[in-house]
Write a protein that binds this DNA or RNA. Sequence first.
DNA 1: TATGAATGAGCCTTCATTCAT
DNA 2: AATGAATGAAGGCTCATTCAT
Lengths: 199, 199, 199, 199
Amino acid sequence: MRYKKSEISAGQIVQAAIRVLARQGYARTSLMDIAREAGMSKGAVHYHFPTKEALIQVVLKTACDAVQARTIEAWGDSTQPFVSLRKSLETLWEVRANRTDEALVVADLLAQALYDEKLRPQLASFYERAATQISEYLLPQLEAAGLASKIDERMLPRIVIGLLDGLVMQAFVDPDALTPDDVVTAIETMAASLLQVRS
Amino acid sequence: MRYKKSEISAGQIVQAAIRVLARQGYARTSLMDIAREAGMSKGAVHYHFPTKEALIQVVLKTACDAVQARTIEAWGDSTQPFVSLRKSLETLWEVRANRTDEALVVADLLAQALYDEKLRPQLASFYERAATQISEYLLPQLEAAGLASKIDERMLPRIVIGLLDGLVMQAFVDPDALTPDDVVTAIETMAASLLQVRS
Amino acid sequence: MRYKKSEISAGQIVQAAIRVLARQGYARTSLMDIAREAGMSKGAVHYHFPTKEALIQVVLKTACDAVQARTIEAWGDSTQPFVSLRKSLETLWEVRANRTDEALVVADLLAQALYDEKLRPQLASFYERAATQISEYLLPQLEAAGLASKIDERMLPRIVIGLLDGLVMQAFVDPDALTPDDVVTAIETMAASLLQVRS
Amino acid sequence: MRYKKSEISAGQIVQAAIRVLARQGYARTSLMDIAREAGMSKGAVHYHFPTKEALIQVVLKTACDAVQARTIEAWGDSTQPFVSLRKSLETLWEVRANRTDEALVVADLLAQALYDEKLRPQLASFYERAATQISEYLLPQLEAAGLASKIDERMLPRIVIGLLDGLVMQAFVDPDALTPDDVVTAIETMAASLLQVRS
DNA sequence: TATGAATGAGCCTTCATTCAT
DNA sequence: AATGAATGAAGGCTCATTCAT
């Protein structure tokens, strides 16, 4: 069991960072805040992560992976085509709109990426994997059902994700304007409308 | 002179702030940067805006109005139903994805709003007005054409805007994943699919 | 009289820095120490000098100039050839060995220059000017007296300065090993020995 | 094994410290740098040397001894009076001006000694021994040659060393101002000039 | 109206030192 | 004898804010 307190502490720091970032946002979060949340000294944080940037990179990766994992669950073990489409969409919305810490951190760092190139590759891969996952779930089911997409198949998952992300922001600044039901119904209808019987 | 010198200077500061914020983002922009860009002293900025927060509020309002104005142009004086739908969507995409200063500032402050309540009302009204505008353009045309929306009519403009916003972020972190044409075609098809002949 | 409090404060900071550096040395001196000595806040020091390095550059220049000025006085208005040679040497020794603040700072930063290239040009010019000054005093007198140097004339002042500097260090670490009189007599004799009747 | 492992490691640390100090200077060298250079952990360094100061003390002594040893070689086993004076001076110059690690460390810590009393005794003894060495070599030869010094005999070696030290610094900040040949010729001539036939 | 000077809190980072193992 | 983890005190620097002029 020599593989270290070190990794344990590093993990604690990352988790603490996610909590604090979710609460305060990147711009308002200092290493001191993270250290305090992790129950350690500032020096300890620097011992495990040489710079703030290095820590944030790991935080971003961890948060992306967590959101990813929950997304996988969302599409999960559905065996009944379309039966569970609505349920999956609902879960996706929950993860984002209910503002889990990880989803908040991803959203926040996404904005930071506008001005920090180093954050972009991580996020690009995040979107890419998300799109792939949805594709892997959706496309076989379409085929089995004899349906085809009216638009480029690559765009289907991108649209689902994009729409979710975009609506999340609207719901956030004005929670009354969009109910979860509004959103899920809209996406569901839209997805259905974009399909047609294969010719 | 209809405007007091004071108002002119304040305006210059706001415009300078928009340029700098678009370039560097909120987290990396100091009042000194803004003052320098405006060709004034730091003291002058504080004379016109008591705190940084007060300045940002005005900046956000100004930027929202500017994006709004350009959105109005996009839907513009089109008399030919649907003929110009594609063109409008293209313009909307340009304003966001081509990253005009104002659109960038709105996006950046949107992220700040995650942690700063005071910014939210402004942005809520921004989305609200955007949705209203699209509605005012789109709904009469639908009616005239004998078409109806498959989903709640209030959601139609929200979806268009949400999809644009969401896809902009994906295009930003990975420009190769989405071409402007992909995006516009997708939105156009989707919008069309959501309509049906009125029963 | 618009030319500023600023320059006054900057000057005070430099003078304070010289005092503190003379007392503690570069490695042990923080900007906080300097600010405190100057009776200002740390922020004020940074207002006048953007970085510690920039301040040190000015400090070095100021200290060199001060030592220089005292050296000029040392060779001063002597009209009597050689009569005042001894007196001049004594003064030179005093300035260095008595450890005026400025001489200490020059010595300290000279050591820093071993690892900081940016300090070197200033010091090179310092030695250069010192050598020139001595030459301008010494060579005409030699000529007038019908004397010539046994060694390259350019080396004469360099040797005087080098010897002073080198002996200062010995005297410093072991004050009992060298009396001022020892030093001055030695240099005087040596200088005399290096001269010969012009052939 | 005559030496304990402990002593071997301690020696490695000291040697590593000399290399690093020569490269970076005291002010810019951390214990971490030294530990890394020695291929050990920071903890190991502290095991052998309770404080940084204790380590530096040993480093200084070691470096002084090394320079000393090379100085002895320089004056070496020369049996031919004066024949090898020039060669000895050249070697002395090399050791200092060519910047062997040990000479650099001595020079650097000499500057530290300006503000750290504890370093001074070591350096005082260093100068003392250097002077003694030169005396032991030089004075018998003078006697044998029927020559006497024009100045206090104790000062002769001090002058040689002081001049070397002083000129090294000038050569360092402005390498073009002094060639090795300039320096050696000057010292040689000077030394010769200070001698006279014994009366 | 506008400026330049000054402040003080806070930030990221470095580092000598301690300690359990 | 040696290591890695952790600490806490600085250190240099940034920045929003205040204020006399």
